[in-house]
Write a protein that binds this DNA or RNA. Structure first.
Length: 126
RNA sequence: CGAGGCGGACGGGCGACCGCUGCGGGUCGGUGCGAGCCGACCUUGUGGAGGAAAGUCCGAGCACCAACGGGCAAGGGCGCCUGCUAACGGCAGGGCGGGGCGACCCGACGGAAAGUGCAACAGAAAGAAUACCGCUUUCGAUGUGGGCUACUAGCCCGUUUUCAUCGAGAGUAAGGGCGAACGGGUGCGGUAAGAGCGCACCGCGUCGGCGGUAACGUCGGCGGCAGUGCAAACCCCGCUCGGUGCAAGGCCAAAUAGGGGGGCGUUAAGAUGAUUGUCCGCAUCAGCUCCCGGGUAGGCCGCAAGAGGUCAUGGGCGACCGUGAUCGCAGAUGGAUGGUCGCACAGGGUUGGCGGUUGAGGGAAGAAGGCUGCGAAGCCGUAAACCUCGCCGCGGUCUGGACAGAACUCGGCUUAUAGUCCGCCUCGCUGA
RNA sequence: GGCCCGUUCGUCUAGUGGCCCAGGACACGGCCCUCUCAAGGCUGAAACAGGGGUUCGACUCCCCUACGGGCUA
């Protein structure tokens, strides 16, 4: 299923911020990076990064659509942004396997606490 | 029935639930006197990928570069003819050449007597010459037989001859040999042997007639073979091409820096300028004057009516064109057009099931047998059960859609593509 | 999205139509040398991205495809 505009990451700046400050977890299919977006009450937002080596436009669109449908059906913590990166193995995976992958990775990120890198920088000088 | 050729259509269907996005409608909020504008949400409304959307290989529209102003040169592209088209390297028809029994298919198909270059190896010789073998002939040396018929013989020529061998020279491109290629071919004449040396036909060149808009075809005369191939080698000839690309370009407008635009006018010199170079021409640069926010991030426009689709009709062999009616047909921007499940239907694989088919092999010694022949021998020639493999139908079971995603828009080309359907045509076998 | 390049042994490269069944270096295999290893010597295997065309002949020239890279915000 689709995902409306305000729940997507839509700017280069937003992608850069999440990838720079977020925590990352990955398995054979996906790599998910999550970052606190500063407004705790907002719905979670998602961005997808699927490189060309995964396949042609048809394959990449299919993965993106499946991931959007999966993400729209699950409740992730509010106030976070996610960037989901796909590996080539994801092109052969079923929707069920992708959903499993997303669930375990997000769970692992939640147990990992708040943005590690932001906290480290806050403790340092400056 | 089998094998094939050409052209065309489709390329997943239905349902349930959950979603995305454009447009329309509605509600609410902000702003404004207001028309309105902006934003959020809702929606029993409506639209939402392709034949290639792809590769980015050509051609255009559109936009900007002050003016796509001219000449010369360079560079790129195209290349049988005629037409179609906005244009094209595309398409249609025709010509020529090649392939196929045929339907039909394929062809970068101008010029090699304008010039330059290249043609390895082999070979005597690869571009105007060449003699390796062979053939012929002259001279010299040595030897004495040689030819024909025929089968151990005969006939003829001759003893300054003839013939053989060797050496030296000349002629010869018919034959052998070399090679991708030796530069006309075949036949007859001719000759010491040969040769376009001569003749006929074919090819080639050239001149003329006729047919055709033309490419070209055809007929006749003349020439008498000089003149090999390669231009996807340089090149010549003809035609053609300004550059950049929607990240073009325009509008609104945080930040930052101080400038930007119009008009008049000097154009003497010089400089600059844009689109490959150069020349001419042109524009700008002085000064005066008038006007003004600027334009990055971001947003909006460009951005969906166009050389448009469908149907009918008329013209044309056709590409295509005219007329009429009718339709309204995607507009995303981290990038929508989908996700999950179910049901059928094509299709494919498999099968210890059922039924059919004799298609192949075994059974089967091509036996028995028959015919021809004096004979040796040769020719003709077949049945069944059953078994194995195969094929067809039904059933079971498993599988189950190819290539692929708009990014300013069109016209083409090229490439990828499971499977299904339709029309026309060709060849073979069989039946009526 | 648009515009341009490139592809030769495992790696880096040479090769401007025939002298190239493609040369060199490093790496690899075998043998010699040495007590052994290294170095050295001898020797071997190993490539024109794929398909089609032009040509007598293609790594080279032309076309298509695949892959890789660069510029453009």
């Amino acid at each position: 299923m689709g995902l409306s505009k305000h729940r997507r990451l839509r700017r280069r700046e937003e992608f850069r911020r999440v990838l720079r400050d977020g925590n990352r977890a990955r398995d054979a299919l996906l790599s998910i990076t999550a970052a606190d977006n500063g407004t705790p009450d907002s719905e979670p937002r998602y961005g997808f990064a699927i490189p060309k080596r995964v396949g042609g436009a048809v394959t990449r669109n299919r993965i993106k659509r499946r991931l959007r449908a999966i993400v729209n059906q699950t409740d992730h913590p509010r106030g976070w942004d996610y960037v989901i990166y796909a590996f080539p193995a994801a092109s052969d995976a079923t929707s069920e396997r992708l959903a499993q992958s997303v669930e375990t990775l997000v769970k692992r990120l939640r147990s990992g606490g708040r943005n590690r890198r932001t906290e480290q920088r806050a403790r340092g000088p400056r």
